[in-house]
Computed example of a mutant assay.
Amino acid sequence: MDSPKRSWSLSTLPPELIEEILYRAPPESLIRAKPTCKQWYSLITSKRFIYNHLDRSRKRFIRTVGTVQVLDPVTRTRSETPLPKEFQRPYGVRTMVHCDGLLLCTCGYFNYRNTNLAIWNPVLKKITWIKPSTCFTTSDYYGIGYDIKKPRYEYKILRFTDHRYDHNVTYDEDGPEVEVYECKTNSWRTLDTEVDWQVDLSCKGAAVMGNMYWVACNHGEQYILGFDFSVERFKDVCFCPPPAFNNYLACYNGDRLSLLQQDEEEPWDIVVWVTNKLADVDVSFTKYFSVSRPDVPALLDHTDMANPVYFIGKQKRIIAWCEREVFGGDDEIPPTCIIFNEIDEGGVRTHLETERHCRYGYFGTFFCGYVYVPSLVPLPV
């Protein structure tokens, strides 16, 4: 006689085991799983679960050129979805800043003085426009973060301008130089701070532990400029190592910064520096590793191409996404390829073309793409 079959379902597992399984699921799958039952919906939408899941999620690359393209560096799979109608003409996305799966997007085109600002969660497919106190311009820089002494979801936005491109605009006409937007109250506050530095054009900022960081220059010295959202104050974090032709800044290990240096004229040499923990009193860069191999490509092919994006993976590996022209064909305009590179001390480990287009130079975004972590964090406004 056959023994009776045992009935089994995921709901029969202990709650803590179910939660552990759901932590390992991608956020897109969790959205589909929310209607399963009241218990799952309550868990998946709780702030505790959302931020614990975020802290376990891995980095991806994202770009918005015609469509939304997301590349998973681990599986090397690329997904493509339609560009949200809010970001279609005349509101093309120009640059992004990432924090907790939220993308702060500047929208508009380079020949327009006025810029629009939006917060976007690609996973939730939600977008909110931020109204300016006066106006946004092409000389503005932005940051997004939070006060570490308050709930993490009470996000703030920083705006500051160096008037680099507004030669014919006076200070009074342009509005305040530095201001902070409280997402909780939907209001701007002006900070009594004078901008006497210039941010490196290739650095739109790195968010680390609720604060923002940029490569900046003042009186010929390159250094890391930080903004602490808890006290709403800029700070000089540390000097940069002697500069190469190109410097690229990124978050490292969740609580530090990495700086990748590569000379455009001698691209076979790459140096990667990392800081100690940013919460330490004294922060400085230490050389992490270097690559000196003849097969190393220039991450910035030339100055008319979009800037590359990167992060440092395990085992001292550079994970980068960049644009590169392809020569040798019969095309009047050489096609531009989007290349996924993995580079370590032994040289190039992966050189994978993920996309090809036939437009030349800047045709939509200043950067090739952006590093972000997909999340279920709701829009803060």
Rank of each mutant, 00 (worst) to 15 (best):
L191Q: 06
E194T: 10
V195H: 03
V195D: 01
W197P: 00
W197G: 02
W197A: 00
D200P: 00
L201H: 15
L201D: 06
S202R: 15
C203V: 04
K204I: 02
A207E: 11
V208I: 11
V208C: 09
M209S: 10
G210W: 08
N211H: 09
Y213T: 08
A216M: 10
A216V: 08
C217Y: 06
N218Q: 15
H219K: 12
H219S: 14
H219P: 00
G220I: 14
E221C: 14
Y223F: 15
I224N: 13
L225G: 04
G226D: 10
F227C: 08
F227W: 01
F229W: 10
V231Y: 04
E232A: 08
R233N: 14
R233Q: 13
F234H: 01
F234T: 07
K235S: 12
K235P: 03
D236Q: 12
D236C: 13
V237C: 07
V237S: 06
C238G: 04
C238P: 02
C238Y: 06
C240Y: 01
A244K: 11
F245A: 12
N246K: 10
N246I: 06
N246D: 13
N247W: 02
N247A: 04
A250R: 06
Y252R: 00
G254A: 07
L257W: 09
L259K: 06
L259P: 01
L260T: 05
Q261S: 12
Q262Y: 01
Q262V: 07
Q262W: 00
D263P: 00
E264P: 02
E265N: 12
E265T: 07
E266L: 09
E266M: 14
P267T: 05
W268A: 00
I270N: 03
V271T: 15
V271I: 11
V274K: 09
V274F: 06
T275E: 05
K277L: 10
K277W: 00
K277C: 13
K277Q: 08
A279H: 11
A279I: 10
A279W: 05
A279Y: 02
D280G: 08
D280S: 14
V281K: 14
V281T: 13
D282E: 15
S284W: 11
F285V: 06
T286R: 10
T286E: 11
